[in-house]
Simulated assay, not measured.
Amino acid sequence: MAEQAAELLLGRVRDGEWELGQKLPGEVTLASQMGVGRSTAREAIRILAGKGVLASRQGSGVYLTALDVREEWDAVLGRAEIRSVIEARTAIETEAARLAALRRSPAELRAVRRALDDRAARRDGLEDHVDADTAFHRSIVLASGNPVLTGMFDRFTPRMREAMVEMLRRRGEFGDDGDQQAHADMVEAVAAKDPEAAARLSREHLAALAAGLE
């Protein structure tokens, strides 16, 4: 009954009955409107609070905090098209490159250079190359010193890997000298502590990937 009541209540939210941030009627009123007992209405509210739709504020009431149920992040990523993956990479990696140029330590720069050399050495097998490429870009994200960007990158990595393998398989070629040089240029911008160049080179690299989809 509580699950059914939660679905009914969620339907009213989706229909726009309340605005974001608005206080909902009390449990007694909601129970009466849904034709259930007060305990069932309370449980329905608890279910939707657990899904991020409602929030109970002590001594104040229940408020609408989202207009729909949060979809599981992994499910969203699993359905993402390659173009969407590249756009998300651009958002994360361009800022990470800019910050890395500002904040990188000597040890982090050495790690970035090692990752670049490893990427250059692993250009024979497609999947092995994608893994080396991912490790390279992660080294720059780590050098940004922003744990949120690192966490986003790590959570994003499995779908990103799938997308890159799929894209390069379609293209039929990968890891040429021009591509490796583009990554080397990015490293030199980080080494030179030039945030604008680092961000621009990161953006241009990913824009070229996106253009290859057309």
Rank of each mutant, 00 (worst) to 15 (best):
A191T: 06
A88L: 11
A121C: 10
E196H: 07
S84M: 01
I82Y: 01
L142M: 09
L67H: 03
L9G: 13
E17K: 15
A111T: 14
A115N: 15
A49Q: 02
L67F: 04
V28R: 07
E7N: 13
E127T: 13
A91V: 07
A197K: 08
E93K: 09
L201N: 02
Q181T: 08
W73R: 15
M1V: 11
G35Y: 08
M1Q: 12
R200K: 12
W18H: 04
V165I: 13
A192K: 10
I86Q: 00
L99P: 01
V62P: 00
R169D: 05
V112M: 05
R155S: 13
D133I: 02
S139Y: 04
V165H: 09
V130W: 01
N146G: 05
A49K: 06
A143L: 02
A75K: 13
E3A: 02
L8Y: 08
A191I: 01
R122D: 06
A2W: 05
D177W: 00
A96S: 04
E196M: 03
V85C: 09
A41Y: 04
R46H: 15
E204H: 01
A44N: 12
V187I: 03
G125Q: 10
R12Q: 14
A100K: 07
T90H: 04
I86V: 06
E108N: 01
S105E: 02
E166K: 08
E173R: 14
Q180F: 03
E196D: 13
T40D: 11
D128Y: 04
T94P: 05
A120I: 11
L8H: 11
L142P: 00
A41N: 10
L8N: 11
V141D: 07
A2S: 11
Y63D: 00
S105G: 10
G178A: 07
M164P: 06
V148W: 09
R161F: 09
E166D: 03
R159C: 09
A80G: 12
V85K: 09
D176N: 14
A132N: 01
A197I: 02
S105M: 04
M186D: 02
I45W: 14
A197V: 02
G172Y: 02
A107P: 01
V112T: 09
A111H: 12
A96F: 03
M160T: 08
H129E: 06
G212K: 05
A80N: 13
D118Y: 03
K193N: 04
R38W: 06
